[in-house]
Design a protein around this nucleic acid. Structure first.
Lengths: 232, 232
DNA sequence: CGTCTAATTGACGCTGTTCAACATGTGTGG
DNA sequence: CCACACATGTTGAACAGCGTCAATTAGACG
């Protein structure tokens, strides 16, 4: 991680729809007091499962994967975070160790907000607690849906759901059909909870059925609806 | 459901460790204003996935399973609630439809608290928001662990984890080894995300290895540590 | 250009599903 | 309180999806 001072103050942050966007200018100024920031290269770990937390991570720009260690060292990819998302809130508010690991999947710049600033913002702005409750609720809903998918879907369906989640999270590139993120086969497999060999074989099958196209690590979805129909 | 008036006012509720236990007497009185209550027989549905929410459920006494409908009508058991737990908070605070179904697994008496009372309590008592945040956080942690288990554990391990969760949630009966809840094989299978046939076969194998005993629907764990060791 | 990691392909076998048959409970009305 | 109907539980057999292991190829990076 490289320490970074090239980020604006929170009061002039241009990121849209972030957790703190409803705060007033002066509240944002106080929020960013003594904040630090850093840039992580692809593959660098931002925080580690089991580690202790004393700050909130706010992604200024980049893409991050959240993974949890399973049995026998096998990773499970839980969710992604990207530009303008916040990270590490759960551990922070509960004084718990991190329950998962955050790793940059491309160059990512992150602001570190001191816990005290967050707590002050939370208590001085009641609306913020409600936003946090809603954020956690939506994480929980997603996680519960994920449980079902892991338990009841076939490997192919889980792979398709992983691809659809990637599209939902990162969107398409300019061409309107290339998923706007590059993952290794292993990471893709970790999303779907399958072996990388199975992921490879199933990707080829999906390609043969013209549901996707493969260009190196890029995955293209020529017809989104058609792919969505595969998982009902 | 049978309407019930045999529950005390919230201010004199004897249930320990419930969500509202830190409120003052007068706050509790206001919380319970115009509350209603009802008793559900085993198998009766308390609320349904997709339904709309305008009240908080507070379990006065009983046991409830939370399930989600998966593909092809197959249920997945997400978690349990019991005496003194609250239910339906997620949908309530987000104005979302219920994301899961709550069903009584034994006779259960529930208090219905009007949404307006809850919102008043939440805004007048900032500590309560924090409790809610912690509750959601802990639900989320459990759910994420659950994702891994569904994806990486074998059927036997998932079944053992289900049994351990039952013990953790409901404890043992007076004999110190009978799990204090009765579930059908189907419900047990729905917990572990396996077919009921597999659940039956694996239960018998666990019995042959003296890890559990079976007496009709009762499941006994003679040596808890031994069973825990099986899932490392 | 060499080395190391990631991706791919093939062979093999186990785990767990499905379907079907049968047994055992459980609850209801007569 | 019994008899019947229906739900739940149990068992067997066949199949196949997917993981594992091993060998090979392709890419990436110094």
């Amino acid at each position: 991680m490289k320490k970074d001072i090239n980020v604006p103050d929170c009061s002039s942050c241009k990121n849209k729809d972030n957790f703190f966007c409803n705060l007033s200018i002066s509240e944002k100024k106080r929020l960013g007091l003594n904040k630090k920031s850093g840039t992580y290269k692809k593959g660098e770990v931002i925080f580690n499962e089991g580690g202790l937390s004393n700050r909130l991570y706010c992604i200024y720009k980049g893409k991050v994967k959240i993974t949890k260690l399973g049995t026998e060292g096998k990773d499970q990819l839980i969710r992604f975070s990207k530009t303008a998302d916040i990270l590490g809130y759960r551990a922070l508010f509960n004084n718990d160790p991190y329950n998962a690991t955050a790793t940059a999947i491309e160059e990512t710049t992150v602001c570190f907000l001191p816990k005290s600033n967050i707590m002050e913002a939370l208590t001085s702005n009641t609306d913020l607690s409600l936003r946090l409750i809603q954020l956690l609720s939506s994480n929980l809903r997603d996680a519960e849906n994920h449980i079902i998918e892991m338990g009841q879907r076939t490997a192919t369906e889980r792979l398709i759901l992983a691809l659809l989640l990637l599209h939902e999270t990162f969107g398409f590139a300019e061409d309107g059909k290339t998923i706007n993120v590059k993952l290794s086969r292993r990471e893709l497999a970790d999303m779907a909870g399958i072996s990388s060999e199975t992921a490879i074989r199933l990707l080829i099958k999906l390609k043969e059925r013209n549901l996707i196209e493969l260009k190196q690590k890029n995955i293209l979805i020529p017809d989104l609806k058609k792919l969505q129909n595969e998982v009902e």
